[in-house]
Design a protein around this nucleic acid. Structure first.
Length: 462
DNA sequence: ATAGGGTTAG
């Protein structure tokens, strides 16, 4: 049985029931719940739950550990995350030294890594840009008598594709087949996408034709990659054609396909068609997500640089932003960057900036409180850099490192005297991550670690 | 029950 939730709150409620029940549910039950939350891409919440489970003395197994480790990887917290894992497992080892290799090297109490553990680690190394480690881990795995499977090969194919080595990626697929591992639609999707990115459109189309002949049905990802390919070349009529073909073949467009189309129309400055499509999804399509909204904000903000209709366009972007704040959508770093960029371009309207800062503040505090990272916040020191106060905090868990955002904020702070303080956060491993803008209504004297330590201090602001 | 693919800012 799987869990499926419409929103995180329901999952959260169930989790709270589970940790209060007696006898306490088995790790299997917890794992099913965690898996459901991971499917909703709420990695930080999952980590937080794992940490509470540890306090309850739940026994970990290779499945639950894989989920946890994967969350760290998805959060881009490879260096930071694994020590926490080590700590959680009470290995009694110095923090910052232990990594997932603890699991791989068999240091973790009797839990043997399986093919999934290895694939997660291989993928994590790859996403971290450590290609040597990718190869190394594959070797280690083989030495342990675990042979690469289709997922392992897919990562290797992806490595070659992202390095622009498309023909090498094709060779990988040949090797797979020789090893008796049948490439699946995911494998071919990577190849199709890679060819599109290299501008080899007809080759991409040939691959799709070839896989159909091999009785592999293209799926929504295959079609989306092709659609995106045409969009990137500004050939919207072709994109539309594939979009319609997909529907005709009984493959329902998902939010990705719609977002790709909408973005394509935006880039082509065909706003009418973009809005038409937007209304189409609003009525009968999948639920609009953060990317859809961000794209809408982006298209209005893109007018700002042309020096056209400055204020009303920014007003439009702010309306979208407001709608997002009122929704259950979790605002992300791209959202803030688009808005901050728009604010910079549009001059220095205080009211607008106020809206932006307040939003950033509220969302971060909400996320922070819900994820209950209070204990992590106490672990970290504080330092001053330049004219800004950099405070170390666990807010980095909410947003990954973004130096661009920080630059924009500095620019903005310089422009606006009323902005009393810009506080930039760094995660423990020293990477710039989230931003918090403190508006003048918040007393600067409260700008210290206490601000982040929980509800009691938060009350002072609300 | 866990792992892999397609979208938005710079």
């Amino acid at each position: 049985m799987y869990y499926r939730f419409d929103n995180v709150d329901d999952a959260f409620n169930l989790f709270n029931k589970m940790i209060q029940s007696y006898p306490k549910p088995s790790i299997v039950e917890f794992t099913k719940l965690l898996a459901a939350i991971v499917r909703m891409k709420h990695y930080a919440i999952t980590v937080s739950m794992c940490s509470q489970m540890e306090l309850l003395g739940v026994y970990w197994d290779v499945y639950s550990l894989s989920i946890l480790v994967n969350c760290f990887c998805q959060l881009g917290q490879i260096d930071l995350g694994f020590p926490v894992l080590g700590n959680m497992l009470k290995l009694g080892v110095e923090p910052y030294v232990v990594t997932l290799s603890a699991l791989i090297n068999g240091w973790v109490k009797g839990i043997r890594p399986d093919i999934v553990s290895y694939n997660i680690l291989i993928d994590a190394h790859y996403k971290d840009g450590k290609i040597f480690e990718v190869i190394d881990t594959v070797d280690t795995m083989k030495k342990q008598g675990i042979e690469p499977d289709v997922v392992t090969y897919i990562i290797l194919v992806d490595v070659h594709c992202r390095e622009g080595m498309v023909s090498e990626a094709k060779d990988d697929v040949g090797t797979m087949i020789k090893q008796g591992i049948e490439p699946d639609v995911v494998t071919y999707n990577i190849l199709v996408d890679a060819h599109c990115r290299e501008g080899m459109v007809s080759e991409a189309e040939d691959i799709v034709d070839a896989i159909i002949k091999h009785n592999i049905e293209p799926n929504v990802v295959t079609y989306s990659a092709l659609i995106n390919c045409h969009c990137l070349q500004n050939k919207m009529y072709k994109a539309r054609k594939v979009f319609q073909l997909m529907i005709k073949k009984g493959c329902a467009p998902d939010i990705f396909s719609y977002n790709i189309m909408i973005n394509g129309y935006c880039e082509a400055k065909r706003i009418d068609e973009e809005m038409e499509l937007f209304h189409e999804i609003s009525q009968k399509g999948p639920i609009l997500d953060i990317v859809t909204h961000n794209t809408l904000m982006q298209v209005t903000c893109s007018f700002l640089s042309n020096g056209l209709c400055k204020c009303d366009k920014l007003e439009e972007a702010l309306e979208v932003f407001q709608a997002m704040r009122n929704s259950k959508l979790e605002l992300d770093i791209v959202c803030y960057n688009i808005l901050i960029d728009g604010l910079c371009k549009s001059g220095r309207d205080c009211q607008m900036k106020h809206t932006c800062c307040l939003g950033a503040w509220e969302k971060m505090i909400q996320g922070f409180l819900r994820n209950s990272y209070t204990s992590k916040a106490t672990l970290v020191p504080k330092e001053m850099i330049g004219t800004f106060t950099f405070t170390f905090s666990s807010l980095g868990w909410l947003f990954p490192a973004q130096s661009f955002t920080c630059q924009k904020l500095k620019q903005m702070a310089g422009l606006n005297q009323q902005l009393e303080q810009v506080v930039l956060y760094r995660s423990v491993n020293g990477m710039l991550c989230s931003i918090l803008l403190l508006w003048h209504s918040f007393k600067p004297s409260l700008v210290d670690d206490r601000v982040f330590l929980g509800v009691s201090t938060f009350d002072k602001f609300s």
